[in-house]
């Protein structure tokens, strides 16, 4: 089976810090492969192992996306396409570039993450499927391609279900807590760095009808004290002292 996985370069939300005065977020960590996509890559590699498949990772974004594509290859992806694009664009523009890059590839299965960690629109996967004229299935837990038949395990109203689906199809990974199953290995990184990444230049994005305001924390001010890596008794002492100081004990 020919498998594609769509990936995005995004901020790591676990490194968000909010300025207590202004409510403005900043990031202490480096942006990288979106965590939702790490799950999709894990699914793709699992699927590949059931059907002797071949995986192409496709992403659109700035120069730094190349590192993410290399990480994807170090995790079990076979080849990568980088659609070079700087700046911001509507989801539909992004979906159009991805669909154009995928159209002639005759992929049987295209995998994506559900919600990216930055803007989390949850739109691009479904839009790519629509533009390619193929169906999609969301909240996917796993996919199996044994004997050339695609069987998908997915979640529906809180229950897991399994169905056989036709190809080509786009599968949107279900949002999952915890760590993705697969990781890049050091050895994998060394070989992946030597592999070529195909490059496509994206056209300029048309003017957008939408304007997004700068993200702002809904609530600011306050002490914003965070106690971490502390023995429970020590943490409790600090919290109790703070509660007393602010006269919050009954």
């Amino acid at each position: 089976m020919k498998i594609a996985v769509l990936i995005k370069h995004a901020v790591d939300v676990r490194s968000v810090r909010i300025d207590p005065e202004t409510g403005t977020p900043s990031f202490t960590g480096k942006p990288g492969l979106d965590r939702a996509d790490l799950h999709a890559i894990s699914d793709a590699v699992d699927l590949k192992e059931t059907c002797a498949g071949h995986i192409t990772a496709v992403g659109i974004g700035p120069a730094a996306l190349k590192d993410d594509l290399v990480t994807a290859m170090a995790t079990g992806v076979d080849e990568a396409i980088h659609i070079q694009f700087e700046g911001e664009a509507d989801t539909l523009f992004v979906a159009q570039q991805l669909a154009d890059a995928l159209r002639d590839g005759e992929f049987d299965v295209i995998l994506t993450g559900k919600l990216s960690e930055d803007y989390g629109t949850g739109q691009v996967g479904q839009q790519v499927a629509e533009l390619l004229g193929i169906p999609h299935l969301a909240n996917v837990i796993s996919a199996n391609g044994a004997d050339g038949v695609l069987t998908v395990n997915y979640e529906l109203d809180g229950f897991a279900d399994e169905i056989e689906v036709p190809t080509p199809i786009l599968l949107v990974n279900g949002a999952r807590e915890g760590e993705p199953k697969r990781h890049s290995s050091l050895r994998g990184m060394m070989t992946a760095r030597k592999k070529a990444v195909a490059v496509i230049d994206a056209p300029d994005a048309p003017a957008s009808a939408l304007t997004w305001s700068a993200p702002m924390a809904a609530r600011r001010g306050g002490d914003r004290i965070v106690v971490r890596d502390e023995d429970p008794v020590e943490a409790a002492k600090k919290l109790a002292a703070w509660l007393r100081e602010h006269r919050l004990v009954g």
Binding site: I18, R219, G222, V226, D229, P232, V233, A235, A236, L239
Partner: peptide, 20 residues
Amino acid sequence: QMADFGVVGDLHKILPALVE
């Protein structure tokens, strides 16, 4: 992100300690 005071840790250990 909206807390004035946050404790990162296991509630099952922190709550009893806080009550004490």
